[in-house]
Amino acid sequence: MEKFNAHKGQIQRDGYTLGYRIEGDGAPLLIIGSHVFYPRTFSANLRTKRKLIFVDHRGFSPVNRAIHTRDCALVTIMDDLSALCQTLGLAQTDILGHSGHGYMALEFARRCPERVRKTVLVGTGPNQSPETMAHGERIWAMLAAPDRKKRLEQDLEWMTRQIEAEPEKRFIWMCLGMGARSWFDPHFDARDLWQDVHVNMPIFDHLWGETFRDYDTHKALSEMKRPLLICMGRHDHLVAPVETWFPYLPEKNQPVFALFEHSAHTPQLEEADLFDDRLLTFLS
């Protein structure tokens, strides 16, 4: 990918070092998650059209104290995002969240509509409840190709060894070990994307294991005051499939959907040109 001049910085907040990285030109697009991982997944072309602002949350941030329960609360993440917006001078911005970070983007838009113009979720299911995820498991069992299932079996053995060796990086090893479920090419090697990414496992365990499991998507969508785009990959076996969104949609102000037929969990990288087109059309 073409190199762009980046403005990097950090804010100190409640013992955490929240990093950020700004690249590109144009109207701002705030992208929640690791400021190290996510710049590697968006195209150079997008940076010629929009100013991409990548920001950490506490799960990806170095911390100089013990991690407490309040650090894992969604309201704490929202307060951090507000502080980052204030530091970066973002009176109003478009916002994007990929995977579990989609819930953060959705919640921020719901809570702070004055700060958000349009919201984009990428590779995010309606929630991670056992019922919703079971739908995806049935599709995997019935429709996933034998080569993809065989690759997963091999990767899970490798993942188990990596977690035993470095349990503090369990989130990263799980993401890599589930590659056959999360990439259109089941043999794609995503290790470079995770290079030098810091993770705090207690925060991921709570957010992904409890908060997103119980997230009230119907309430969030019914209270949304700004336009919403939901991008899903047809071959994403990591989260619940696009069809599971339908029962949660409100009668009015329904989201716009974009389905990427040759993508799995990360269409911004797997089908970059088409993703950029759909994203920029929505944001225009």
Rank of each mutant, 00 (worst) to 15 (best):
H7I: 03
Q12C: 08
T17H: 07
I22H: 02
G24P: 06
D25A: 10
L30R: 00
I31F: 02
G33I: 07
V36T: 14
Y38C: 03
T41I: 15
F42H: 12
F42Y: 13
A44N: 08
L46F: 04
R47S: 09
R50A: 04
L52G: 03
H57Y: 10
H57L: 08
R58M: 09
R65G: 10
D71G: 12
C72G: 13
L74P: 10
V75R: 12
V75N: 15
M78C: 04
L81Q: 02
L81R: 00
S82K: 09
Q86I: 01
G89Q: 07
G89S: 08
T93E: 03
L96E: 04
G97L: 02
Y103P: 10
V120Q: 01
V120P: 07
G125W: 08
W140G: 10
W140N: 08
L143M: 11
L143C: 11
P146Q: 05
R148L: 09
R151V: 04
Q154W: 01
W158D: 12
W158C: 03
M159K: 10
M159C: 13
Q162H: 12
K169E: 09
F171S: 13
G177S: 10
G177I: 04
G179W: 02
D192V: 02
V197W: 02
N200P: 04
M201W: 02
I203L: 13
H206N: 13
W208A: 15
W208K: 09
G209D: 12
G209F: 03
R213G: 04
D214L: 08
T217F: 05
H218D: 11
S222H: 09
E223G: 05
P227A: 00
L228G: 00
L228V: 05
L229N: 05
I230R: 03
G233W: 07
D236S: 06
H237F: 15
W245I: 10
F246S: 14
P250R: 12
A258P: 11
E261H: 03
S263P: 07
E271W: 00
A272H: 07
D276Y: 01
T281L: 09
S284K: 12
